[in-house]
Amino acid sequence: MEINRDIFFKFFNGELSENESIELISWAEKSQDNYAMLEKERQLFDLLNLAPEECFAEPEVKVRRLTFVWKALSVAAGVAALIAAALFLRTPDKSQYMVADTVVTAPAGSRSLVNLPDGTQVWLNAGSSMTYSALPGKDGKREVSLEGQARFDVSKDEAHPFVVHTYLADIEVLGTSFDVIADKDRGLFETALFTGKVSITTPDGKTSCVLSPSQKVILGDKKLLLGSIENYDIYNWIDGLYCFRDRPFSQIILDMEKYFGTQIDCQVASAVADEKLTGKFRVSDGLDFALKVLQISLDFNYTFDESNESVIITD
């Protein structure tokens, strides 16, 4: 790591990794001059923090920090699960009709189009699953749960709001089209709105925001951020395209496992795994082709096992 001035600000912001912090500290302890420089940088940092808002006046900035109680959320989710279980045990009204919830899963390597009873169309991306009930829930809401990525084209029915439950937040809709990523294992959450209007609410009810068309909400570092969609490429997955922008190789590999339905064992050094790449693949061109193209910009080897079911990537 090169010690430069941007590193100082990252240190004050708590954005450095532990190893980077240790490196910076040993640099600061090397000489009095170094330490004095760090102190001076801290003063500048404080000054900027204390600068009046007009200094930044910027009406077109569309980012908003949503107060977001991360710890409370995980507790609340646990409580919600308990309550849900309790309700299920105590109110057997649904089972009266003998209607079980339906689970739809798009296996890794393929996308699925699901037509819901109310006319709503849902594209499920590879490796994602959705649960829905044929009957409207209590309060007449149409409810589905999602794990993974899906595109919704919700049929308009203002009397029966459409709700997508995810591990992180609920998305409530009137009639609209939007894309959701809710991947708990990888800590990803994103909702991008194309038409109509949706509102997003965390289980504690404290954070909620309404999206307008061409806006998106993403999960940042323990906070939800509202921004505008600048790049529509990544939403082309429903047409069988996998697009990525400035994405670490290790994340691309995780994505490709799902897109191509092949297990990929990535054993490269972290320098290669962290390398960021931008590109676009047609899923129908196959994994072998995609890996060959990636090899042009990144130095790695790969071998398919005999049954073609898994790939090992090495330096």
């Binding site: 912001n13 954005e15 900027l48 923090n49 600068a51 808002e53 930044f56 910027e58 077109e60 900035v61 569309k62 980012v63 908003r64 920090r65 993403i218 940042g220 570092d221 951020l225 921004g227 505008s228 969609i229 600048e230 790049n231 922008r245 400035d246 960021k276 931008t278």
Partner: peptide
């Protein structure tokens, strides 16, 4: 405008480089 926008997100909203990249569509 671009510089001011990025700088505002970084200083005024305390967003990290990664978050700003994700929101603006710029590279990190």
């Amino acid at each position: 405008d671009e510089s001011r926008r990025v700088f505002t997100m970084s200083r005024r909203y305390g967003l990290s480089v990664k978050e700003i990249a994700a929101v603006t569509g710029l590279t990190e």
